[in-house]
């Protein structure tokens, strides 16, 4: 992913910033310009706590070429405490240790290196929750 495009996503990748609708209160991640629930364009940014539970998961054995050197790695749909689901990689957990319903928390980790000389791109992953 090119640097300008990644830079644009910095508040999402590093801070888990989505939107909250001022009219109806619905929270979304990724951020929206129009509320999918009530079609209002009055939205403010909303930072999710980064806590949630595993809704579904998978371990990847055949990856897109950028992620080839990371296999096997695990991914999940995480149900955030504030409502929405988020798609994420999992960290610090083996394929046999993941369960649906397990509490997880957001951490910042390396997503990938853009070749040997390219930038290293960081962003959210989720790991098993360390504390309540």
């Amino acid at each position: 992913m090119d640097i300008p495009r990644y830079w644009r996503l910095r508040n999402q990748r590093y801070r888990l910033e989505g939107t909250e609708c001022i009219e109806c209160g619905q929270r979304n991640f990724p951020p929206r310009c129009i509320c999918p629930h009530c079609k209002s364009d009055s939205l403010k940014s909303f930072r999710f706590s980064g806590r949630g539970t595993v809704y579904s998961f998978s371990t990847i054995y055949q990856a897109l070429d950028t992620f080839d050197k990371d296999i096997p790695y695990s991914i999940a749909l995480v149900k955030l405490d504030e409502g929405p689901l988020i798609t994420t990689q999992l960290a610090d957990v083996g394929p046999d240790e993941i369960q649906i319903g397990q509490p997880v928390e957001m951490v910042i980790r390396k997503i990938y290196e853009d070749g040997e000389n390219g930038p290293i791109q960081y962003g959210y992953k989720f790991r098993p929750a360390l504390k309540e």
């Binding site: 998978s58 749909l77 798609t87 649906i100 997503i111």
Partner: peptide, 23 residues
């Protein structure tokens, strides 16, 4: 898929379908 929030964080098409199948 969603380039910013699915593919670029390491999800192939099989991965998305795997999430549906597991659930």
């Amino acid at each position: 898929a969603d380039a910013d929030y699915e593919a670029s964080i390491g999800l192939s098409f099989a991965a998305l379908n795997a999430l549906m199948m597991q659930r």
